[in-house]
Write a protein that binds this DNA or RNA. Structure first.
Lengths: 256, 256
DNA sequence: AGATGTGAACACTTTCACAGCC
DNA sequence: GGCTGTGAAAGTGTTCACATCT
């Protein structure tokens, strides 16, 4: 029952499931909105609707944090905001650096939600000497040469990579060597990092491709509804056809 | 939601697991790189390393697509590229519109990975009349008033929302009403859509908060290694302390 | 020999349904 | 009566380990 191998009896339910952690920011956002409207308490049903999840899941999630609700009443909004903020580590200040101040990097620097919630853009870094000194979102861009010094001087442990794919791994290595242990990667590359370093990836192209998959599936189902055999553009190429190209020609591949 | 009992008995293994679909773009990217280097075949071990997953998972994933490998040899790179592209629906052209041409929207319009792989930016739309006609990434920005006409004229089924949070739901409603059935949402809001419409969310602030959680946990574990009792800054506030603020003061909340 | 493809075991997540408390 | 908190069941996803095929 315990969390696993642990050499420690576990102070109870040590270890919040990853899926739950990923939803806490969602709850926090919904709660913050309620707090701004001075709503004192909220039920799991209401809050779940606001966060776009179902209420059983929400209650289960909260149960990992502790018993913060009141039966028959609901949850105290302010108190929950505080508890979730604490659990997420947002009661402290996290200086972050953004590396790669192109279109995307500039957008990130300007992004408001970035600055709120305990995150502070400590520095912007770019490899282009022409950018150096130019202010973006009110913060002067610094050159990559000073990366290590910037990290250390500001005690930065979270880095955002918004460089082209080709530069990402090298930037990543330098960030990690300088002491960064969490990386948010916007470059379309797989980063390899030593154990103990967390990487989260945001990849626009991947998200679109996932949407395209479902979009195509929708179109295919419509077609099937019309003609009920499986030879439509979607259904083809299943297991049994593993001899040649199931369509006409095989290679084709993609544009660029 | 999804009271949706499957209206379909499922013809065999119809339906690739969602987790697998989410990894296909990753494999595709790695394979495209191999293809560009003219590598003819690749083993599950090599490809898995390039994609940053383990080889068993990769083989299982591919097994849902069919038997496209050769035992003792590996996978034919070109053939796999084609099959995955097909499965993802990338052999056809997907016109997308981007709504909200601020910093982020402009960055997206300029993002190269967007244009490749079958996606084409059909139009840029913004509510600011001053933006109308101005080209961004070589494409003239059009006004929100014409949204419906643009969607219909271009046969757009995928929309990208990069507006401020306040405008997102309204834009979403109009996109859906005009025929869009897949939405990539960059605004920090939960969108509600009718059944049959897919929404994927990209939220910078949420990603950072998840990183902060793990970052904090790392710091807490270090502290524990030093002093082995559970009263560190991380361990506090568990179940039993549900009376007042477990620290000093309670409300605090966050900046803005 | 060497690598795929896959049943079976395992782990994690979601949902159900209701006991327990307000 | 109403709503939380949670065991238990169901559903998904991952990993193992090996039979199978080239």
């Amino acid at each position: 029952m315990a969390t696993g191998r642990t050499h420690r009896p576990a102070t109870r339910s040590r270890g919040i499931p990853e899926a739950t952690v990923a939803r806490l920011p969602l709850y926090l956002r919904a709660l913050t909105a309620l707090s701004e409207r001075s709503v004192p308490t909220v039920s799991s049903e209401e809050l779940a609707a606001a966060a776009g999840v179902n209420s059983a899941k929400l209650r289960k999630d909260f149960s990992y944090l502790g018993s913060y609700g009141t039966r028959g009443v609901g949850y105290d909004v302010e108190y929950l905001v505080y508890q979730i903020s604490r659990e997420l580590g947002l009661t402290q200040d996290w200086p972050v650096v953004i590396v790669g101040i192109g279109n995307l990097g500039a957008a990130l620097a300007n992004y408001g939600g970035f600055a709120s919630r305990g995150f502070r853009v400590a520095a912007l870094i770019d490899a282009d000497p022409a950018m150096a000194g130019k202010p973006v979102a009110g913060i002067p861009v610094q050159h990559t040469d000073d990366l290590e010094k910037i990290i250390e001087d500001n005690g930065v442990s979270i880095g955002v990579i918004a460089t082209p794919a080709g530069a990402a791994q090298q930037v990543c290595d330098r960030l990690v060597a300088a002491g960064v242990t969490s990386i948010l990667n916007f470059a379309p590359t797989v980063l390899s990092v030593p154990e103990g370093v967390d990487v989260r990836k945001v990849d626009l192209s991947i998200e679109l491709q996932i949407l395209a998959f479902h979009e195509q599936r929708k179109a295919g189902e419509e077609a099937e509804a019309a003609g009920p055999d499986g030879s439509g553009p979607v259904a083809a190429a299943r297991k049994e056809s593993a001899e040649q190209g199931p369509d006409g020609d095989v290679p084709a591949v993609m544009p660029a």
